[in-house]
C-alpha cells in the first residue's frame, strides 16, 4: 500500500516528469499556449503512456528477458511505441470521430515525446531486478505510467493557464515567447520543490 501511494504522489508531484525529470519538454512548450489543445494533448499522452507501458512490460518480461536480448530494449521499446501510436490513431479514427478530432494531430507527435519512452525505460529499470520482475511489478508499472501521464497533463494545464495571461503581459522584447516560458517553468519547478518535503 505504501508503495502505491509513493508511486502516485511521487509521479504527480515529487518527481514530476516535466518539472524535475525534464521529460517531454518539447510538447510542453509547443502546446501550452492555450488551454484547449493542452487538455487534448494531456489526454492523448495519458492514453499512449498507459497502453505502451502495458505492451512494453509484456514484451520485456516475456520476450526480451527469456531470450537474453535486453540490450535490444531501446530499439524494441521505440518501435512498440511508434506502432502503438499508429494503431491507436487508426482505432480512434474508426470508432470515434469526436475523439479523433480532439486528439488527432497530437497523436503522431507523441512518438517522439521522451516522456513516453522515459516511463517505459524507468519501469523496466525500477520494477525488474536481476532479470526478474519484482513483486507486483506489472501493477506498479501501469500505475506509474498512468500517474506520470496525469502529472504531465496537470503541469501542462497549469502552464497553459499562465501562458494565456502572459500573452497580455508586457515582457521585455528579447524574452518574449520561449525564454519567458522557461523562466515561468523554472518558478513553477521551484514551487513544486516544496513537495519534496513530503516524507513517504
Amino acid at each position: 500500500m505504501d508503495k502505491i501511494v509513493a508511486i502516485i504522489i511521487g509521479s504527480l508531484f515529487i518527481n514530476n516528469f516535466i518539472l524535475f525529470k525534464f521529460l517531454g519538454l518539447c510538447p510542453f512548450l509547443g502546446v501550452s499556449k492555450q488551454t484547449k489543445p493542452a487538455v487534448s494533448m494531456g489526454l492523448a499522452v495519458i492514453f499512449v503512456m498507459v497502453s505502451s507501458g502495458l505492451i512494453t512490460w509484456l514484451v520485456y518480461r516475456f520476450i526480451l528477458l527469456p531470450l537474453h536480448i535486453d540490450y535490444m530494449r531501446t530499439v524494441t521499446f521505440i518501435l512498440v511505441i511508434a506502432t502503438s501510436v499508429q494503431f491507436i490513431e487508426m482505432v480512434i479514427l474508426k470508432t470515434s470521430p469526436v475523439i479523433y478530432r480532439a486528439l488527432g494531430i497530437y497523436l503522431p507527435l507523441i512518438t517522439t515525446n521522451c516522456a513516453v519512452l522515459g516511463v517505459t525505460v524507468l519501469n523496466s529499470n525500477e520494477f525488474f531486478s536481476a532479470g526478474k520482475p519484482v513483486n507486483g511489478s506489472f501493477g506498479y508499472a501501469i500505475l506509474q505510467a498512468f500517474f506520470a501521464g496525469v502529472g504531465f497533463m496537470f503541469v501542462l494545464l497549469l502552464m497553459s493557464g499562465i501562458r494565456e495571461r502572459l500573452e497580455l503581459a508586457d515582457t521585455p522584447e528579447s524574452l518574449e515567447g520561449l525564454p519567458i516560458a522557461f523562466i515561468v517553468a523554472s518558478i513553477m519547478s521551484l514551487a513544486f520543490m516544496g513537495f519534496v518535503g513530503l516524507k513517504i
Binding site: 528579447s174 524574452l175 525564454p179 519567458i180 516560458a181 522557461f182 523562466i183 523554472s186 520543490m193
Partner: peptide, 18 residues
C-alpha cells in the same frame, strides 16, 4: 537543482536574442 536549469536556459536564450 531542476529550477536552475530552466532559469539558466531561459536567460541564455533571452540574452542571445538581445
Amino acid at each position: 537543482l531542476a529550477p536552475g536549469a530552466l532559469l539558466v536556459l531561459g536567460l541564455l536564450i533571452g540574452g542571445i536574442r538581445w
